[in-house]
Design a protein around this nucleic acid. Sequence first.
DNA 1: CGAGGTGTTGAAAGTGCTCAAATGGCGTGG
DNA 2: CCACGCCATTTGAGCACTTTCAACACCTCG
Lengths: 251, 251
Amino acid sequence: MTAVIKEQTQPDQKQDVTGILQRSLMFSDMGADILQPLVEAATLQIVPKGKILFVHEEKAEFFYVIVSGWVKLFRETLNGEEAVIDVRNSGHVFGEMAIFGHDFYDYGAEVVEPAVLVTIPLAILRRLVEANTQISMQIFRLMSQAHRLQIGELEHRSVQNAPQRIGCFLLRLCKPGDEGPITLHLPYDKTLIASRLGMKAETFSRALARLRRETGIRTNGGSVEIDAVSQLSQYSCAACSSSYPCQDLPR
Amino acid sequence: MTAVIKEQTQPDQKQDVTGILQRSLMFSDMGADILQPLVEAATLQIVPKGKILFVHEEKAEFFYVIVSGWVKLFRETLNGEEAVIDVRNSGHVFGEMAIFGHDFYDYGAEVVEPAVLVTIPLAILRRLVEANTQISMQIFRLMSQAHRLQIGELEHRSVQNAPQRIGCFLLRLCKPGDEGPITLHLPYDKTLIASRLGMKAETFSRALARLRRETGIRTNGGSVEIDAVSQLSQYSCAACSSSYPCQDLPR
DNA sequence: CGAGGTGTTGAAAGTGCTCAAATGGCGTGG
DNA sequence: CCACGCCATTTGAGCACTTTCAACACCTCG
């Protein structure tokens, strides 16, 4: 339906891409010289909402760095259900787990808010990882953090009920140190938040209503007002292994 | 209550430990010379059922290789619930994810069937990983596989109902190629299987009864007879992203 | 204005959980 | 060898939470 605007990385864009990579979680603070092979092979894309970048079990050729926008990672079952694995934004990377072991994507990826992405062939990254200890150590850190987040996700799904999971989601939108009255904005639409949290849209709507009743937060469309973060964290984190602020679960 | 029998690795045991490591998933097919620093620092333990090896958020000093027995990895919430992350057996490794990033265990570990374990300081592994590409590549493979398994776990919990999850668990006990009438034995007690699958013991009991009714399997205590693996996989894998045999979920 | 997407609400059904009680196996102490 | 107590497992009844199906309100866009 909508064409992806692929832009070859022109000389004047290479600086941009280098900077983008250096601001990403995977390549933060790495020298331009180290990143050069990646930058050479990188493509900058503007991708509209709804675009499916790849599907589960497709042969993996590229990994992606998100410059802006939101990307949903998901799996589809044979009977048509969808399980959302994660929804990622600026600075995050996806599709990279296929570097080792089998060469297939572990999930599908769909742009859910208009995005700017850097696309880089996995082969280049693979070569770099084998040659450069600094990069491989950084990826280790990232993978072990991803693992930790996954464990947290599993825990949340099994011990928190719907309103608590929503509360937890809101808490992760807070900046560290936030306490008093603040206003948040939901990063993407409620339907997606619902499936991101493993519940149906209707359940989300009702659970949010209950969360309002029980913690005193107020909502108006996509904006959320929280008077006391502590009250919300008390409500949600009671059913969790770590109390707020939940260092295990950034974003 | 029960003392852990720590055995210093004596010269005559070093060969054993080397062999054990070479048969593990993490160090398979690696030369004795490469493994030597690990073997030097390794301790072989016989650990009784019930022993808690470490708890979530404890400072991480060692990682473990399972020679025999079963180990439960879990988290506990503030209000006393427990979420089982995984239950592992021979050849598997745990506690290793703490190598990078923060130095704390991501979960607690408890021996649930009498086990023989090799205990190795994380510091040694860390040094080895930084120095040896073969090891770091192998660990990458393992971490990405672990990641894939975690994703599968999340998917299962969100799209399969209780009887289907049990069926899926049974399928993973089959050897590749099994079709016809076979008899399986549950690897550990039903209460633990229940929490491994994210349900209560009572639910497990009832769900197993329903699975019997709907797929024709028979059970007698811990043994399970399956006449047609295909019938079971059809029942369970319908709500899954990959059909049987589910390469994503070994064990 | 009409269409389609997003979000909310109601009623009914389903799934898994809690609490309680009964069963049966197994090891210990007598 | 038996009685006892403990633990794993099963079963029943009632309940809580989530889903399903349906209807409707809103909003935006053409």
